[in-house]
Design a protein around this nucleic acid. Structure first.
Lengths: 117, 117
DNA sequence: GAAACCTTAACACGTTCGTGGTAGGGTTAG
DNA sequence: CTAACCCTACCACGAACGTGTTAAGGTTTC
């Protein structure tokens, strides 16, 4: 099992060398380093890069989205706060209760009903 | 329990009217609507807006981050894919195995050891 | 020691996010 | 009826994201 340098890794994963550095900076795939600082992509890192690319493409997700998910996975306080917020019935429009309705319908209905009565 | 119009809601939550529309478009807080289309923010929506603001500030997250979390919460396939990817030891640098090291240290060590021996 | 790599830092540029504003046109309130 | 509000749809604009390229300088290879 050999380790590939950044250009070799780029070739076999479909990422550009520039993006491999960017992905690392985003905290998503950090390859090992040679004593002189060269990035060394092992089999595991290459696999992660390929599956990451697949993930982004399949679900049309951005790198920062995955970075945020990663952050949530490692920060329990953040994760709990976000999940707690989401739990409270997110995007579904609120039920409109009678009073709310009245405030806007009162006049019309009042007149209408009066006319009918 | 009355419902507030967008400007009233803006006043009591600290968001601007413009941002309340944006937050709704992001799929995070969708208020009820009056028959004529006016947004009606009830107590629940107001609370969600306040806690959302708090969430963003406390953890320095972006609206799109929360929007993505929301998307994950509602899409099991996406959630599973992301969590599966993260599970595989994300940002920690890979272990450098003996072979990888050798490839870069061989010459130096070879000479060094030869000299010592 | 020269060619071919690698590294970080920086400039550049198109795209999206976050935010404010304005315009044209309904709705509500006094 | 008029003033004050709401709606949607734009234009604008700085900040951040995603990507490529280039510059200046080490490493590896032969």
């Amino acid at each position: 099992m050999e380790a590939l340098t950044i250009n070799e890794a780029a070739s076999t994963t479909g990422w550009s060398p520039r993006m491999l550095r960017y992905v690392e900076q985003a905290g998503l795939v950090a390859p090992a380093r040679s004593p002189s600082g060269y990035r060394l992509y092992g089999a595991a890192a290459l696999q992660r890069l390929r599956t990451l690319k697949e993930l982004l493409a399949r679900f049309d997700v951005s790198l920062s989205d995955v970075a945020f998910a990663s952050r949530m996975a490692g920060d329990a306080a953040l994760r709990d706060a976000v999940q707690a917020w989401l739990k409270a019935e997110a995007s579904r429009p609120e039920d409109v209760n009678a009073e709310d309705w009245l405030r806007f319908e009162q006049d019309k209905h009042e007149k209408l009903l009066a006319a009918v009565a």
